[in-house]
């Protein structure tokens, strides 16, 4: 018999290194000869879209288009350290550093331009002319951002370990086949707090990807480690979802700008996957009345739990 149920998973997530660990991002913004702006930073593009989002922050700050931002992040010998591409920290931390470097560059450009031509409004300044008129001079701004975090007390764990926190809620509907134990997610909704959306489409992409990874964590993934040996060490036996396993996800971006974020933005890369598995587990209970307390919720575990439930009822 196929039974349906709904479940919700609600989470919070502290972004950044945390617990007082120095969490520093750096950026350098340089006006190029042709009036475009180069951003140098060590923040890695791992596929999450940081190169695009961080270019947008630079473009916004300087009032230029994203095509006029040249983003350089691939070489340690020419880029400043911006910390790791982890902890959902690049948009917030490096975004802030880039914003600061661009603001400083902007101030310097205004300084030299006002001295030279008397223009005072940023909108009146043509960056190509500035570059041309100040050929011999390197116009650059440097930005450093240090996240707010304090070390917690040893005996009580009290303190302010992270800032900011990002919130995420998933709701799913599942269909459980009680004859073979297969769980299918048939409907899914994600509401993601983002502070401010720098690029909504990229955020949606993160939500979709986090959803697939969370679904897989709940239902499929198991390394099957026996005496220290990974038995599922190939893609033939370590299962991750195909396009057939992931339903469409309804995505709700919730904006509530964070005062310390670049244009209000917060990190979302990790939160987007966290609420999925608990929502699925709660939906399974709603459908068939058994709590799966050990991941993954494989057909075998579902059938065993159902059998146990029947035995208890007898």
């Amino acid at each position: 018999m196929k039974k349906r149920g709904k479940g919700i998973g609600s989470i919070f997530y502290g972004t950044g290194y945390g617990n007082g660990f120095p969490d520093v991002s750096r950026s350098v913004a340089v006006l190029r000869k042709d009036g475009k702006v180069k951003i140098y930073t060590g923040a890695t593009e791992v596929g999450q879209g940081s190169k695009t989002v961080l270019s947008q922050i630079a473009a916004e700050t300087l009032g230029i288009s994203i095509e006029d931002v040249i983003f350089i992040c691939e070489d340690t010998s020419i880029t400043p350290d911006a910390g790791t591409a982890a902890a959902s920290r690049q948009t917030y931390n490096t975004g802030n550093a880039i914003k600061k470097s661009c603001e400083e560059l902007k101030r310097k450009i205004i300084d030299v331009t006002v001295k030279a031509s008397g223009a005072d409004a940023w909108e009146e300044i043509n960056l190509r002319d500035v570059a041309l008129n100040h050929k011999g001079q390197i116009l650059k701004g440097e930005g450093e951002f240090i996240a707010e975090t304090t070390e917690m007390k040893d005996e009580t764990g009290q303190g302010n370990p992270y800032w900011p926190y990002t919130f995420n809620v998933y709701g799913v509907e599942v269909e459980v086949d009680t004859t073979n134990g297969v769980v299918e997610v048939i409907k899914a909704v994600c509401a993601q707090d983002v502070g401010r959306a720098i690029n909504p489409k990229l955020i949606e992409g993160q939500m979709d990807g986090g959803f697939a990874m969370g679904l897989s964590y709940a239902l499929f993934e198991d390394l099957n480690i026996k005496n220290g040996e990974i038995k599922h060490n190939k893609l033939t036996n370590y299962l991750i979802p195909t396009a057939m396993d992931v339903p469409d996800l309804e995505k709700i971006i919730v904006e509530d700008p964070e005062a310390t974020g670049p244009y209000g933005a917060k990190g979302i890369g990790e939160p987007v996957m966290i609420g999925v598995a608990p929502a699925i587990l709660n939906a399974i209970y709603d459908a068939i009345g058994v709590r799966i307390t050990e991941l993954p919720a494989t057909p075998n575990k579902i059938l065993l739990a159902l059998k146990k439930k029947r035995e208890v009822a007898l």
């Binding site: 809620v169 709701g171 509530d256």
Partner: peptide, 11 residues
Amino acid sequence: SVPLRQCIEAV
């Protein structure tokens, strides 16, 4: 920036 309630209600 604690829009948790909004997220729960939307879902």
